[in-house]
Computed example of a mutant assay.
Amino acid sequence: MTDLLLPLGQVAAIGGAVALGPLIWWRQRSRASTPAGRLRALTVLTLFLTFDLIVFGAFTRLTDSGLGCPDWPGCYSAASPVGARHHIEAAQAAMPTGPVTHGKAWIEMVHRYLASAVGLLILLLAVLSWKLARSARAHHEPAPSPWLPTLTLVWVCVQGAFGALTVTMKLFPAIVTLHLLFGLGLLMLLAWQREAYVPRPLSVSAAPAALRTAVAVVLVLALVQVALGGWVSTNYAVLACDEFPTCHGGQWWPHLDFAQGFQLWRELGQRADGSWLGFEALAAIHMAHRIGAGVVFVAILALAWTLRRHAADWSNWLLAAAGWQLASGLSNVVLDWPIAAALAHTGGATVLMALLTTLLVRLRSADH
């Protein structure tokens, strides 16, 4: 137990040090604000750092640094790669092109430090939310419910558990994909929470009652598409189709093995029976994501067209996000998956989810 608790405390302490700078900045900037205004500013700060964490998590995966420190929460039970340098050197000497190098270890640990910092900020948000609610009740004043920040705190703890499983289960594709989805869910909760402190109903002109339903449908479709994108990335299936609009060798529809490609509970690169995953399975994963992208793109265009008559600024934001995702997604294929394009694609998906969540919350506020 000591082998777990000691590095966990050390990593959390480093995360606290990372969070200290943003907290000082937040405190200085929001000194003259109301308690609700300070909470909203802290939520915006945490939202921004969560976006950074998701993108840096993608960078960790794209640089094959997920097992740079093959244990958890520390690096060979040390708080940083400095204390684990002998273990890292031995692993690198045994396998020079393997997953453990000094550079990859630092990338993985920086990701954990940033995750710890975000977790501590969310803990502070929950504590301050309950304090604000208690003060508001004492003075018979309205205040946002503290249960949403509490749910966010529980969510980030579950997300941390999936982060640990990502390492201990050796990049098990289903776990890595769930880790990504829980990260996006965390961002969506923070976007929702941000709106709760200063409600700003969407300015609409005779918006149809079905508009909120349409946004919810697009949000669900986008989530499914993100899950497919995560499955492509965690299975390294991006270049299974290295052409566009065709897939491989000029084929529009090559032989695809969806059954093996979407067998969820299996090791990385393997089938459930332990044999190697074939090209047909990887191509099926890629093509499913490509088809999903077309569906979501059309859905966003339809939603943007509807919004143009009621909230043109939101229509433009959604069109910009959809265009960004189209360009960055195509760049991954035609430019052989450069890290910059892959990070742009992940960042674009994250922004799109935050936009759709905020839009849905504001439409809900308008209805009430």
Score class of each variant (00 low, 15 high):
residue 23 L to S: 14
residue 318 L to K: 02
residue 200 R to W: 03
residue 27 R to G: 11
residue 224 V to S: 14
residue 73 P to Q: 10
residue 332 N to P: 01
residue 95 M to P: 04
residue 325 Q to C: 07
residue 105 A to D: 03
residue 204 V to I: 15
residue 140 H to T: 15
residue 160 G to Y: 03
residue 10 Q to K: 04
residue 88 I to F: 01
residue 305 W to P: 02
residue 337 W to M: 10
residue 63 T to D: 02
residue 113 Y to W: 03
residue 180 L to G: 03
residue 274 G to P: 11
residue 186 L to Y: 11
residue 22 P to L: 00
residue 310 H to N: 09
residue 336 D to P: 01
residue 21 G to A: 14
residue 65 S to P: 06
residue 355 L to C: 13
residue 96 P to S: 06
residue 147 W to K: 13
residue 78 A to S: 12
residue 297 F to V: 07
residue 14 I to V: 09
residue 180 L to D: 02
residue 120 L to F: 08
residue 161 A to W: 08
residue 8 L to G: 12
residue 279 F to M: 08
residue 205 S to T: 15
residue 28 Q to K: 15
residue 15 G to K: 01
residue 214 A to M: 11
residue 106 W to I: 03
residue 331 S to L: 14
residue 79 A to R: 02
residue 113 Y to H: 00
residue 141 E to Y: 04
residue 155 W to V: 05
residue 333 V to K: 01
residue 322 A to V: 10
residue 201 P to L: 13
residue 258 F to V: 14
residue 103 G to F: 13
residue 170 K to L: 13
residue 47 L to G: 06
residue 16 G to Q: 10
residue 63 T to H: 05
residue 23 L to V: 03
residue 175 I to E: 00
residue 190 L to F: 09
residue 213 T to G: 12
residue 34 T to I: 12
residue 240 A to E: 00
residue 267 E to A: 15
residue 242 D to K: 02
residue 124 L to F: 05
residue 123 L to F: 09
residue 244 F to W: 14
residue 194 R to F: 11
residue 118 V to L: 11
residue 259 A to D: 14
residue 25 W to D: 00
residue 74 G to M: 03
residue 19 A to L: 01
residue 1 M to T: 11
residue 184 L to V: 10
residue 260 Q to L: 11
residue 125 L to C: 08
residue 131 K to L: 10
residue 147 W to A: 08
residue 58 A to C: 05
residue 125 L to Y: 08
residue 74 G to V: 07
residue 127 V to D: 00
residue 172 F to Y: 13
residue 130 W to L: 13
residue 147 W to P: 08
residue 96 P to N: 06
residue 46 T to A: 10
residue 41 A to S: 14
residue 261 G to A: 14
residue 139 H to Q: 14
residue 245 P to C: 04
residue 3 D to V: 07
residue 292 G to V: 00
residue 8 L to P: 03
residue 9 G to A: 06
residue 253 W to I: 05
residue 73 P to G: 06
residue 24 I to Y: 09
residue 343 L to E: 14
residue 198 V to K: 10
residue 126 A to W: 03
residue 200 R to L: 05
residue 319 L to Q: 08
residue 46 T to W: 07
residue 195 E to M: 09
residue 58 A to K: 08
residue 49 L to P: 06
residue 305 W to E: 09
residue 214 A to L: 09
residue 206 A to Y: 02
residue 301 L to H: 04
residue 27 R to E: 14
residue 335 L to P: 04
residue 182 F to A: 11
residue 236 Y to D: 08
residue 276 W to I: 15
residue 17 A to Y: 03
residue 344 A to T: 05
residue 18 V to K: 05
residue 34 T to D: 09
residue 107 I to R: 02
residue 210 A to G: 11
residue 114 L to A: 12
residue 261 G to I: 08
residue 268 L to S: 11
residue 121 L to V: 00
residue 249 G to L: 04
residue 282 L to C: 09
residue 111 H to N: 04
residue 118 V to S: 06
residue 17 A to P: 03
residue 342 A to C: 07
residue 67 L to Y: 06
residue 4 L to P: 05
residue 59 F to Q: 13
